[in-house]
Design a protein around this nucleic acid. Structure first.
Lengths: 208, 208
DNA sequence: ACCTCCATTGGACTAAGGTCCAATTTACAC
DNA sequence: GTGTAAATTGGACCTTAGTCCAATGGAGGT
């Protein structure tokens, strides 16, 4: 599948704001989608490509901060740029602590928002690559049988075949077979590469 | 050397604020040091133990944000809690983007500041452990001779001795010797552990 | 019943890594 | 010049890992 087009999502209960931002964003050649409420945005299926979210803080129903929490809870990672007409410092600090990329009090210039959007899309692009690689690794790990997985985690901590065999109550020969399958399924040629993948997948490596 | 005591640094040009914060911080059993200006703080040698910085934004001479930049530039990593009487949202956002742990507009409650301080000290404690481990690893890497280092970086990418030998124009035998020294100097028993250390030190591991 | 996947193990080898002992050459500092 | 550290290489040998071929037994699905 080809790389999906970047999209800028806008969530604001004020239709005129949505319309203005939509026009601004399209004026620089980016695709935009606007939503009148957090719930409407949540109904849209996640976009398969770089995206970011321009989010009003104050809205009826779910507020912008609520939506941020909601998205974090469901592991829907997307860079958020907050905009607000009546924000205060604690609110901005809370939003930034929760990972927002920017927080723009109205009035802001077109350029300020566009700069923030480009930074956010750039950030999301990198984050997506990271996630894609990670899910690729985890897919491979998922293809391991239970026994292979047991061998895998021990190999990446530097255990010898004989040690693994003893710990798992099997013969060294059996471990060799599992180990070979692990290397093949994970698509690596060396222990170094295997450890490299394990680190990325967050699998405990040596104690140091 | 034993673990150094945590210290909370306070930088504020208002002597009465310094005094009040000093009393507050000491009241919960923490050590405090106050400075009337950023320059005074910069003159103090870095503390060898957990610490954090409570920093006023608006000051004559170097401002709080200036000091934050200054510290970042000289790699002096310390969690910063900003306090201010006349801050605005963009200022707080900038500070948070630059890594501040909190940003408290006056008036704030004693508890708010103390909570922030405890969080900051906790964060610094973890960061210090990270840095200590990293510098320990880098010290060991630094003890490698140039040739050993060349072998090291190739081993952690999964190259075979014979491949390394060919690439470095030496015999496989020589590589074995260097490799053995690398393992010894780095204090590891297995390639897995070696790769683990290399990852932490940011040394390029396999492409994959 | 039959088939597939998983787990196991053996034998026979090949290849790769590691160890011990020993020796040479070069560069640089005292 | 002498000494030290670094880089090199050989030989002999042992330990580990990996490969090819072959085979058995159990669990679960068709």
């Amino acid at each position: 599948m080809k790389a999906a087009e970047p999209i800028v999502f806008v969530v604001d209960d004020d239709a005129s704001v949505c319309k203005a931002l939509d026009r601004l964003i399209r004026s620089v050649g980016l695709k935009a989608e606007t939503f009148p409420s957090a719930k409407d945005f949540l109904r849209r299926e996640p976009h398969n490509g770089p995206s970011c979210l321009v989010l009003d803080i104050r809205m009826p129903g779910l507020s912008g901060l609520d939506l941020q929490r909601e998205l974090a809870a469901k592991d829907y990672s997307i860079p958020i740029i907050f905009i607000t007409g009546h924000g205060d410092i604690p609110m901005s600090v809370q939003a930034m602590k929760a990972g927002a990329v920017d927080f723009l009090p109205k009035p802001f210039s077109d350029q300020e928002l566009l700069d923030a959007i480009h930074a956010a899309l750039e950030k999301d692009t990198l984050a997506r690559e990271e996630r894609a690689e990670l899910s690729n690794i985890q897919r491979r790990i998922g293809s391991l049988t239970p026994r292979e997985h047991e061998v895998f985690v021990r190999v990446v901590t530097g255990m010898l075949n004989k040690q693994i065999a003893w710990e798992l109550g099997a013969s060294e020969k059996t471990i060799k077979v599992h180990r070979a399958r692990v290397m093949e399924k994970m698509g690596v040629q060396s222990v170094a590469e295997l450890v490299h993948l394990a680190e990325k997948a967050g699998i405990p490596t040596p104690k140091v």
